[in-house]
């Protein structure tokens, strides 16, 4: 039996599935809580609406993200090296080839989006093309292809249903329920709309934190898969170092242009120390480099 150099990471899997379970539980809690506070019909209605908006976002994710980054699709004739690299990585991973996009911005970044592996886009900025060597770029592309293979866009949008539902509910409740929450005669108690507002705010806050946590876990998973695909964890590590350094040096005005699509990017597009680790969409550079170093050690272990 051939031995494998693949090191499992049970801890990451456990943490990730726990967070996803909590997000699901939060969604159920919101719907049930609402049904108790304001009647069963409304709870189910809000639940369905939350899922509906999430599905809509997921179905249009490629167009929305491409537009937000002002990216254009490129053909194999326009970018033969980029296409050649992706061709080979897809053959190595046995996955369908995504479309390829390039965004004209000096911010070094890359992202992958799309509703399924068959209909996805991998996009890089001209900034990243100029900054990285071929090997480093390949590491970045492998990371993005791993996002596609893991269906991260689907997972993240479904996971955000609770937050979306709570957000909509909060908006409605702020204006006194728009007549939706009938004034029941609960003398002396809190008005129903206030209860709904408080519950939705709490759900929104918890869902926000859990989503960011999930996003960081998905990034680590994509780093892992990407490093194993190219067999060069060191190239991805040096690319990450370069990109993160580059992003922190870029003036603030440029960064706002890309913040909309931040959760889908290879490195957080918003730099600076003010961003606390709790709400970061990406794990810290140290954490990512540490994981890559572990993979590197396993790959370079001498033969028995």
């Amino acid at each position: 039996m051939a031995r494998s150099r693949f090191v499992g990471d049970a801890g990451l899997t456990v943490r990730m599935t726990t967070v996803m379970f909590l997000l699901g539980a939060l969604f159920v809690a919101l719907v049930v809580g609402l049904a108790l506070a304001a009647g069963g019909g409304l709870g189910i209605l809000i639940g369905i609406a939350g899922i509906g908006v999430a599905v809509y976002q997921w179905a249009n994710s490629d167009k929305v993200a491409m537009r937000a980054m002002r990216a254009r699709e490129v053909s194999p004739e326009q970018a033969p090296e980029l296409h050649g690299m992706i061709d080979r990585l897809c053959a190595l991973a046995d996955m369908p080839k995504p479309r390829v996009g390039v965004a004209d911005t000096s911010v070094p970044n890359a992202f992958a989006t799309g509703r399924s592996p068959e209909r996805s886009v991998v996009c890089v900025t001209t900034g990243i093309l100029g900054m990285l060597s071929a090997e480093e770029l390949e590491g970045v592309l492998a990371h993005e292809l791993s996002h596609v293979a893991h269906r991260d866009v689907l997972v993240m949008t479904v996971a955000s249903s609770a937050g979306i539902a709570a957000g909509m509910l909060g908006q409605g409740a702020r204006f006194g329920g728009l007549g939706l929450f009938g004034r029941r005669g609960n003398n002396g108690g809190l008005p129903v709309w206030l209860v709904v507002l408080l519950v939705s705010l709490a759900v929104y806050a918890i869902s926000f934190l859990l989503l960011r946590l999930l996003s960081r876990y998905r990034e680590l998973a994509a780093d892992r898969a990407g490093a194993y695909l190219t067999m060069r964890p060191d190239a991805l590590a040096s690319a990450l170092t370069k990109i993160t350094g580059g992003i922190n040096q870029i003036p603030q005005r440029d960064l706002r242009e890309v913040s909309a699509a931040s959760a889908l990017c290879i490195a957080p597009a918003i730099g600076g120390v003010s961003l606390s680790t709790l709400t970061a969409t990406h794990p810290s550079l140290e954490q990512r480099l540490e994981q890559l170093a572990r993979i590197q050690a396993e790959l370079s272990r001498p033969t028995a």
Binding site: M16, H150, R151, A222, A225
Partner: peptide, 15 residues
């Protein structure tokens, strides 16, 4: 990729 691999975000290298 199966459902479990999607949920756990974990693909094994293809043999």
């Amino acid at each position: 990729m199966g459902l479990w691999e999607t949920i756990s975000g974990r693909s094994r290298p293809k043999r």
